[in-house]
C-alpha cells in the first residue's frame, strides 16, 4: 500500500484519501484534507502553523522524548563477584596494564609446567624403584607358587610328619 505525505502538513495520505493538485507550472501537491488544502491556497507558510510537521521539526518538538526512551532501553553493564573471584580481585586484574597481565599469565603457565614436570619425575623414579624390586625378587631364586605370586596367603606348614 502506497502512502504519500501531505505537502503542507506532512501527514500521511492513505489510498482513497486526500486530493492531488497540479499547479500550472506542473508541480504536484498532495493534501490530506480540506484544511491543509485551504491553508495552502491561502499561501500560508506551514513553518508558521503550529501543528504541521515542518513547524514541529523546526522547533524540535517531540524529539527529546524519543531520545530519552532509547536511552532507557540500553543494557547496563555492572561488575560483581563470580565464584572463584571476589569483586576486588576482578577490579585489580582489570586495572592492570595489558603487558603486566600477559606477563603474569606466562608466569602462571610456566609454574604449572614445572610442577607437572616435577610430579612426572617423581612418578618415574617410583616406577623405576618398583621395577628394580621386582627384578631383585626374581633373582633370589626363591620358589613362589603361582597362587602366592598372585597374592594368596602362604600355606600353613604341616606340624606332623
Amino acid at each position: 500500500m502506497r502512502t504519500y505525505d501531505d505537502t503542507f502538513s506532512g501527514q500521511k495520505i492513505y489510498p482513497g484519501k486526500g486530493k492531488l493538485f497540479v499547479r500550472s507550472d506542473s508541480k504536484i501537491f498532495r493534501f490530506q484534507n480540506g484544511k491543509t488544502e485551504s491553508l495552502f491556497l491561502q499561501r500560508k507558510n506551514p513553518r508558521r502553523i503550529a501543528w504541521t510537521v515542518l513547524c514541529r521539526r523546526q522547533r524540535r518538538k517531540g524529539i527529546s522524548e524519543e531520545a530519552a526512551k532509547t536511552r532507557r532501553r540500553r543494557a547496563v553493564k555492572s561488575q560483581r563477584a563470580v565464584v572463584g573471584a571476589s569483586l576486588d580481585v576482578i577490579k585489580e586484574r582489570r586495572s592492570q596494564r595489558p603487558e603486566a597481565r600477559t606477563a603474569a599469565r606466562a608466569q602462571a603457565i610456566k609454574e604449572g609446567k614445572e610442577k607437572k614436570a616435577a610430579s612426572d619425575s617423581v612418578k618415574k623414579a617410583e616406577k623405576a624403584k618398583n621395577a628394580g624390586k621386582a627384578a631383585s625378587g626374581q633373582s633370589t631364586g626363591r620358589v613362589i607358587n603361582k597362587q602366592g605370586a598372585k597374592g594368596a596367603s602362604a600355606k600353613p606348614r604341616p606340624t606332623t610328619k
Binding site: 489510498p15 486526500g18 486530493k19 492531488l20 493538485f21 497540479v22 499547479r23 507550472d25
Partner: peptide, 19 residues
Amino acid sequence: VRTAKQVQRKDGSVVKFGD
C-alpha cells in the same frame, strides 16, 4: 486535457489542476 474542477477517479483519488 486539464480542468480546475476536481475529478474523482475510480481508485478513490481526486485530482485537480491549476487551470
